[in-house]
Amino acid sequence: MISTAQTAPRAEAPTAGTLWDPAFLAQLRRDMVRFAQLQLRDPAGAEDAVQEALAAALSGQGRFSGQAALKTWVFAILKNKIVDTLRLRQRMATITPLVADDKDEEDDFAVLFNTRGHWRAEDRPHAWGDPETTLAQQQFWAVFEACLTRLPDSVARVFMMREFLDFDTPGICQELAITTSHCHVILHRARMRLRLCLEQRWFTTEAHPC
């Protein structure tokens, strides 16, 4: 007898668009691992944080209206796991202390400016166009991640604590035992590097098909 299964899917089978859709969960996990890896810079530690966050989030998945809501919630949990891991590392002193090498780095950026401290013509920042258009393009996010990955570890740690983990600068100073002015210098360094990277790798090329 010929089965009619293809015309009558079983009610409990996962369908695209639901929270249990395997393709959605696999993609979500990959996004989480990349996010954790960017900040922890340690594949095993990133994997652990993601497993814990996913388990915690999915045990209460019935509360979510859709995939986007679940994803936001899972990422919020993941951020807490990352903070826990960073704090543990700080206590165990397994991360290299931040060293004050401000002078060298400032000299790197000095080449962007003329002797009067103004932008050199070829290094003057360009207009980046409509942010919404850019942020809606998947390829942009690949470039964005690549630029974040290129940040030196100590700069990345401070920048991501500020921007991803919602620490304020006094909070970062306290966690990492650095001064406020050093914190501001590091955040400036991160933003200067990121904007240069994005300008070179995304905004100076013409077509970006989605």
Partner: peptide, 30 residues
């Protein structure tokens, strides 16, 4: 200074991008 004005908008853009990324919503809309 148009250059610094562009820089200012780039700082705003970076904040917007990192916020969106940290919520896991860094997807193509389609």
């Amino acid at each position: 200074c148009p250059g610094c004005n562009n820089f200012r908008q780039q700082m705003t853009f970076l904040r917007q991008a990192t916020r969106q990324y940290a919520q896991g919503q860094a997807d193509c809309t389609d």
